[in-house]
Design a protein around this nucleic acid. Structure first.
Lengths: 352, 352
DNA sequence: CTGTTAGCGCTTTCAC
DNA sequence: GTGAAAGCGCTAACAG
């Protein structure tokens, strides 16, 4: 576009001085400058070192990440795949992960996949292209092996290329994971409800294709099974959002007006369920008891406060990030379990 | 650690094949392979192109981001500085920013600064070192120029190095910004309350050092000023969290038991305020009206639903990210305003 | 403890 | 339309 100049003017350098310039200005070799400025095990004469450091500061030297990555064949970048950062569940996981990333001097690239398999694959490729040192997968994998396979394979590819993968939720063999006790938590919720005398119980599920939901559903049913009085669960599916919960609850009430308790498999949805119950004129917990899952911070401030199953979301994020920087196990994959706990609050009470 | 080998075994390549290997396998030059595989304006014979593409796929070639960054002197990485991703306000901004980042094929590195100035500076440096193409600053800057200066200067440094900076909130001259109408929104809240007949009004502020809070406080006071009946505002400061709001409201009630309305300058805090009011036996809105700020999604589902000032958080995130990739203005900085709107719900009513 | 010297993988003139 | 070659900025042997 611009006219060619015969004397190539020294374009204003993009990122300050280069290491070479610092070395020259300090009267040392490139190697020495490198050693003092960018962490090396090799030791350098303290005085010289100090001098180089001064010159670097004066020249506003800033290391060139990409160049270092190229030379070192490794980066300090970690990818984090979430369904949606704007969902409190994932933002908590992200916050946990970032806390330890910060301690370890890692930069976190967050990718919102909107639960779109194509996007997920694409992001993994892009993170691989950036030579991210690791990828954290926070979203629940699909139950259907056919659907899970592409993701899993792409992850394995990436892993084989030298990257580390840690998943929150089971992505199958060879992929390290931290596993929330969804089954146990849901089971506890069921026992709680049946102990209160509930027999006709609604189950508001999120997308059944997700193992998270499948596990919670299964755990709840197993709890029902082991309770006296032959309690029965009526399951309905909804979108993984507030409105999805609202909508599903309406349908549940229409189909089974006699339920005295509802188990909603995610708090985001439970918020909608609470609204639906209210709009339907059902008092909580007097007419209908409500139990959620995840224990989002807002739960305690809902009216009534929501009984729910606590999941240590931040802790899982931290744990996953810790695994990323840990030594890889020689034998088999690393699996860490994260406990869940039933938190009883005001939204549950004895059956009417 | 491991014993030195005389024959340096060809270590399993970290990221699959290199461009050179693809070129060789395809029987073309490195340059040609580069042209077909990584976007170039130069045109290549369609057949040859197709052939190279096939070979690349077969060899599982994945471009090497850092190497490209080095050669091109530019990256597709953007930094996003937030106080805390786990705060719904920031996670919404992040979600908006990521949506357009995705459209533009940009990867977003998110940094949690916990409102720590040191950390902020450090992250900017690190993002600069990674040669991030731009930095989005989402957190409110400090009011005190002395405190704002280091951040501002670091940002300017980065910008001078060729990076783009866009801030949500005013970081001063030369830094592009998207500015939420905090003053106007707060003003509207005041007018709403005084119109309902309130005269003794509590103001629960977040950290007064932040311009966001200062603006909201100022706007509210100006609204009070322009109202009839000489309404008076009692301001109290609290931490920028649910508990901060709870605590500050308790103190407010103790100091000014006669308030009939409370304006809380952030919804996160308003959630705590609502609880404090409830715990103090004040009915909302019968005894005390409550107005928040931000319009977090949960507001509509609180009991009562919270009257609040809507801020287009996601929209601001989108806008900011859009500015990042837009042409830089030749003259002066780019500033975009984002409107706010009072949303009246159940938490406000006529003065007792 | 310090300097020399190969690259790391890719882009981009510049010739052909 | 295609290839050869010169780097981009830095690290890591290797030799002194």
């Amino acid at each position: 576009m611009s006219t060619q100049r015969s004397t190539p003017s020294p374009a204003p350098r993009r990122g300050g001085a280069t290491l070479q310039q610092v070395a020259d200005a300090a009267g040392v070799s490139l190697a020495t400058a490198s050693r003092v400025l960018n962490g090396s095990t090799r030791t350098v004469n303290p005085e010289l070192s100090e001098h180089v450091r001064e010159v670097a500061t004066r020249l506003r030297y800033v290391s060139h990440g990409p160049a270092q990555a190229l030379a070192r064949a490794t980066t300090s970048l970690v990818g984090l795949l979430v369904h949606d950062v704007n969902d409190p569940y994932f933002s908590a996981v992200a916050a946990g992960a970032m806390r330890v990333a910060r301690e370890r001097d890692l930069l976190v690239m967050v990718a919102n996949t909107y639960r779109d398999p194509e996007l997920e694959l694409d992001y993994i490729t892009r993170l691989g292209a950036q030579r991210a040192r690791a990828i954290l997968v926070a979203g629940s994998p699909p139950v259907d092996p056919a659907l899970a396979k592409p993701l899993r394979e792409r992850l394995l590819d990436y892993q084989q290329g030298g990257g580390r993968v840690v998943s929150i939720g089971d992505q199958g063999p060879d992929i390290d994971a931290v596993l929330p006790a969804n089954v146990e938590g849901a089971r506890a919720a069921a026992l709680h409800l049946t102990a209160l005398g509930h027999r006709e119980i609604g189950m508001v599920a999120g997308p059944r294709g997700l193992v998270t939901i499948a596990d919670r559903s299964e755990g709840f049913r197993s709890g029902l099974m082991d309770s006296d009085g032959d309690p029965v669960g009526h399951e309905i599916e909804g979108a993984f959002t507030r409105d999805g919960g609202y909508d599903a609850t309406q349908r549940l009430l229409a189909a089974h007006p006699d339920v005295t308790a509802v188990f909603v498999m995610a708090d985001v949805m439970a918020i909608g369920a609470l609204a639906a119950l209210r709009d339907a004129g059902r008092r909580v917990p007097d007419d209908v008891s409500l139990v959620g899952f995840d224990d989002l911070p807002i739960c305690a401030d809902l009216m009534p406060a929501l009984t729910t199953v606590r999941v240590d979301t931040e802790g899982m994020g931290e744990q996953a990030m810790r695994m990323v920087v840990s030594e890889v196990q020689d034998e088999g994959r690393a699996v860490v379990h994260s406990a869940t706990e039933l938190i009883v609050r005001g939204s549950t009470g004895p059956a009417a």
